[in-house]
Write a protein that binds this DNA or RNA. Sequence first.
DNA 1: CCCGTTGGCGCA
DNA 2: TGCGCCAACGGG
Length: 477
Amino acid sequence: MSKWRVNTEHRFLNLSDITLGTYNLHDSYNTAALVGPLFRELQDRGNLDYVLNIMEPLQRAVINMQARGMLRSREALENYRKEVRDGLNQTDKVILAADPTGELKKPTGKYPNGIGSSQRLGKFLFGTLEFKSTKTTDKGLDSTDQEALGRILKGFRKKDEPHRQVLESIFHRSRLRTIQQRYLNLEAGSDGRVRAQVKMYGTKTMRFAYADPPLQQFPLELRHIFISRPGYLFLQVDYSQLEARILAYLSGDLPSITTFLENKDVHQENACDLFNYSQEDWEQLDSGLPKPTRNFAKSFLYGISYGGEVETMKTKTFCPCPKCAPHMPPTLKLKKTEMKEASDRWHRKHFRVRDWQAEIAEGVRKKHYYQSPMGCRRWIAKPWGPDLDREVKNLPMQFGGALIMNQRQVELDRMEAPIVLQMHDSFLLEVPEDQIDHWASEVKGVMEQPVQGLGDVSLPCDVEVGLNWRDMKPWMG
DNA sequence: CCCGTTGGCGCA
DNA sequence: TGCGCCAACGGG
């Protein structure tokens, strides 16, 4: 059953030919009359060249990409559906058995029980089970999200132990329910291919957005349901640390620029600075810098370099249930004072960043637009405030990254590169097996071309190949 | 910190 | 039935 069904009974379709003709005439005339003023406005606002040179040909590229679509494996999808269904039956059984009031058993409009209602779940956790709430929603209700559940589990005492399985089930359920409802209902064509809607003009930063389904947000663990057709492979080429590099070059942050030019891992380097390690400290370890340390440095860097305060920064909580926990990446927890020190240390070393951001914000505040060196202008009409300030401080990186990607996609489309997906900093292609080497070097070549707006530096890419979208392996050419 | 999409819920 | 809120997922 299609979500988009044409209503052939619509009154508009039953109007007389002369009425429809007259309507169409007016419609066409008035649309055509807009062209002149529209072009003039684009010119006045400094975006005509970008629209003509990039956005116009990009439309063709997007149409081609959308038409290709992605093949979904019916079998993999079915297997996953069953797994999720079984998992939900199990979690719900555990949760409902723990509620003596029976309040959670009452159905909601759509679902046979009320676990999905955050209000009722909150009453269960903080009323019936008497846990202490440590987090509220914007409206002041007790939060039941993953972070809140994680905090409850962290503060567990002996007397709480009987409820451990219930808490873990609630956590596990929230993820499963999202996957089931949002990502397992796929509309595929008769050829088994999913063609998502690509929104070219929807975002503030000129990134693309996908809908029906939202492919850019597809959970990593079930991306394997998208497979390449027989005789073909997926080829993925992605920029390494795209925004971090743009930040370094635009702000003139010499320590980071040096790291990038020497082809070192910037997150590893940041991690050493943040935790006060010397190079020798971690080089002595067998496996190099521990992964959790590097991961922490990575998200920490994004947080602080976009104006985040250490006091309000949070780390993702992973599912603590016995089934998931062994597969989840280890995490690192730091004290607030340690994080504050780390942040100060980072800003001292990368002292250009804050000054440069202040200059950007000041310019935007005066001119009401941000001019990207990558050739497009973003107009901003909102009254200034702390939120807009941070938004503007993020703009050069996210906007700039998107502009680079758009320009490269136009070029790749002209070469008829079989792109099936654009993922913010990477392209996914579906190519014949015997053409992998060809397209790997072609795509990498285009993406690594010098960026004019960035002092002609090249942004390096990594290449991966695989039979499905999840299990991609590095490609050495 | 920034940028997004989406389904369910509960209330007007 | 329309709408704000909540919570989940991803990218940097």
